[in-house]
Design a protein around this nucleic acid. Structure first.
Length: 276
DNA sequence: ATGGGTACCTGTCTGC
DNA sequence: TGCAGACAGGTACCCA
């Protein structure tokens, strides 16, 4: 489900409300992608710090009573969402993690259980470090430029869409936003990454930033069930130009949008507006 | 190192 | 209505 905009919208929707809360209980449901990596009871009495995001991961700092470091690295996988509420009600069959605090309960709901909640002493340690290692630049990092993108794409021979999705060049664009950014840049998603000119990389870097920024401003995309931690749906999907629109006329030129499969995932593009 | 494929798990939708 | 099959917003891991 969630790409960078949805994860960031989620972060913003509960970060301030949970900041400074003290953990009073932890409840686990079915297993997620990895074990929590700590006795749940060891989280009790810890204090929640400022929630941070790296790529599609969230880092929830949990300082011990004597300022012992530590925190939870969370990922929403394909179908996860976080809700923060004073009275969450009984856990349903898809609720797999509750962090109960003095301000309310942070609950992870994840039907497919590709998501994760993992303890580490710091983002630079243990499992968190392993998962965060090798992530590419943040799209809003000033270092993410056309020049950087060009240099990175030159080193690969995969289709440019797969290079964007891989997350080791730039993070945050998943299947929806990779398709949309390539449309905005006018680049055929099947183009070999090492054959894209510097000028087109400039446009693509801009397009990735613009696509993600616009989605963020609209509260993300809600295709079936995405909600932020207040329960609000996103609106970006209403503005998608190509994603999920196979057969529809391109809004720019009228040609039918095509769907192809790359890396076992659907890619949508306009065969006229997007060139190799 | 790179690229390609598989695996994880459940729900929803489509077509017969 | 039932059932099989395709498909879904992600990514770690294995193998060539």
């Amino acid at each position: 489900m969630p790409e960078l905009p949805e994860v960031e919208v989620t972060r913003q929707s509960f970060c301030e409300r949970i900041h400074g809360a003290r953990v009073t209980d932890v409840r686990l449901g079915k297993p997620l992608r990895w074990p929590l990596g700590v006795e749940p009871q060891r989280l009790v009495s810890r204090t929640v710090g400022e929630v941070a995001r790296r790529g599609k991961y969230l880092w929830l700092p949990l300082a011990g009573p004597d300022a012992e470091p530590g925190g939870l690295l969370m990922h929403l996988g394909m179908s996860g969402s976080l809700a923060f509420s004073p009275e969450p009600g009984a856990a349903g069959s898809h609720d797999h993690f509750d962090l109960v605090t003095t301000r309310g309960t942070l609950r992870l709901t994840d039907p497919r259980r590709f998501g994760a909640v993992v303890w580490s002493d710091s983002p630079a340690d243990g499992m968190a470090a392993k998962l965060l290692a090798g992530l590419g630049l943040e799209p809003f990092d000033p270092a993410f430029t056309g020049a950087h993108l060009h240099a990175a794409l030159k080193r690969r021979r995969v289709a440019v869409k797969l290079a964007l999705l891989s997350g080791d060049i730039v993070v945050g664009a998943g299947n929806i936003y990779a398709c949309e950014a390539l449309f905005l840049a006018g680049i055929d998603p099947r183009t070999r990454s090492d054959r894209i000119s510097r000028a087109r990389c400039d446009r693509l870097a801009d397009a990735v930033r613009e696509t993600l920024a616009r989605a963020l401003a609209l509260g993300g995309s809600t295709l079936r069930d995405f909600r932020d931690a207040h329960g609000m749906a996103g609106q970006f999907q209403l503005q998608a130009q190509v994603y999920g629109r196979a057969g529809d006329p391109c809004q720019a030129c009228g040609a039918p949008i095509r769907r192809v499969v790359q890396g076992q995932r659907s890619t949508f593009f306009c065969p006229t507006c997007q060139r190799r």
